[in-house]
Design a protein around this nucleic acid. Structure first.
Lengths: 225, 225
DNA sequence: TGAATAGTGTCTTTCAGACAATATGCC
DNA sequence: GGCATATTGTCTGAAAGACACTATTCA
């Protein structure tokens, strides 16, 4: 039987879009761009762009992330593929959505040619979003909370040496509730992922904390909180 | 600035492919088709096909599933989108993979025009698969086990009234290990999802079991096993 | 010495998991 | 009676969660 060629079908367009989270000033932030192009010109959207023929969706997501933030490596996972028929006024567009978690200290935001502006928004105070990006962001937020609860991805927001209270504050920010210091330390230390270092915190106006460092890998599924 | 049209980019093709699981004869099965077309003609593959321009990926998955099995409604969730550059010899093809869980009693298998054969395979004895379908299937199997452990999707393999031992045997099949009857019943009944009915099992050559029915919805995330 | 945060231990409750003897229905 | 499966409760260990006082540094 004759091979049916790919040309026998119309093709949708495919984009990789990324929900980039960070924790800054004890607040959970999302990175948004102000679109320079129609449709939704001058409206806020999550960063992303069309998949090039020679790159995998993951590569496209990494490229977009690098273009907007300068960040080369960070926690990045595929979230979900959104493909409802009418989701883009330009025609049939499938969006492979990713979610990323970056340490905002590492970031130098820069608007690309497609964007007039790039900014961190508190997830509590989001502007109206383009396309179905609100739905994507809500889904990402659910996934984020779930991953924080059941894995150690939170640790990817820290680097080098840090006091345990930093980690606790990240959890408190993401879940918007307080955690007991003693129980939190007990839990984290029992995981064996962090280890006390010989250093203590510098330049704080109160008792400086012991600093901890990573000993192992991060990301396995376990019950965290 | 001028709107950049969708035509300014080359488009990949997009397929919806489905890993269909069922439990039959105390064995975990996967549905495979024997391809009628090149490439991989006469080789086994997971069912799927190109996305039509007027249908969502979910609709496409449902359509493919209906075409191969006659099943209209079942547990279906999006699994992952596979898009590595060289995954299809015909060119750039993005596969939105789904995983489905069906009760094989409800099924009447039928080969479509694209398939010479459709068959259930034990996950322990799979043939060599086309494309990257082995990778997709392995991923689906991981997700399946995970979902069985943390949600009540297993219940979607049962319908009407059933003895608890049926449910237990499904778990034993999927995890390939025995579960203690007492602990299992305790756990299941404590969920409040099933309720004793007034009926008992008929036509068995041993003590007939109490039949249970569903009282609520299935699928929430909880620790199951 | 006051302000801010660090550091530390015990008790209670809950849940998972191990474990075995009796009951029922069919042949 | 023999066979195959159903039904039922207790104990133990681990982990989560509630809870409060003392220590350290700086201004």
């Amino acid at each position: 039987m004759k091979e049916k060629g790919l040309r026998d079908y119309e093709h949708p367009s495919v984009t990789a879009d990324i929900v980039v989270f960070s924790v800054k000033d004890n607040d959970l932030k999302v990175l948004l761009i102000k679109r320079a192009l129609k449709p939704f010109e001058n409206k806020w959207a999550i960063p992303g762009g069309f998949l090039r023929m020679h790159e995998s969706p993951e590569d496209a997501a990494h490229r977009e992330l690098r273009e907007e933030t300068g960040v080369d490596s960070c926690y990045l996972e595929q979230l979900y593929t959104f493909g409802a028929v009418g989701r883009d006024p330009r025609g049939r567009v499938i969006s492979i959505a990713y979610f990323a978690l970056i340490n905002s200290d590492d970031v130098s935001l820069r608007a690309t040619t497609d964007a007039k502006d790039v900014k961190w928004f508190s997830v509590g105070k989001l502007p109206k979003l383009s396309f179905d990006h609100k739905e994507i962001l809500d889904y990402a937020l659910k996934r984020l909370r779930w991953k924080f609860e059941y894995t150690t991805i939170a640790f990817s927001l820290l680097s080098g040496k840090f006091p345990l209270s930093n980690l606790r504050r990240i959890y408190e920010t993401v879940f918007d509730k307080k955690f007991d210091k003693r129980n939190f330390s007990k839990k984290i230390l029992s995981l064996g992922i962090v280890k006390e270092t010989s250093e203590i915190q510098q330049g704080v106006a109160f008792r400086p904390a012991q600093l901890y460092g990573f000993t192992g890998k991060v990301g396995d599924i376990i019950k965290m909180i």
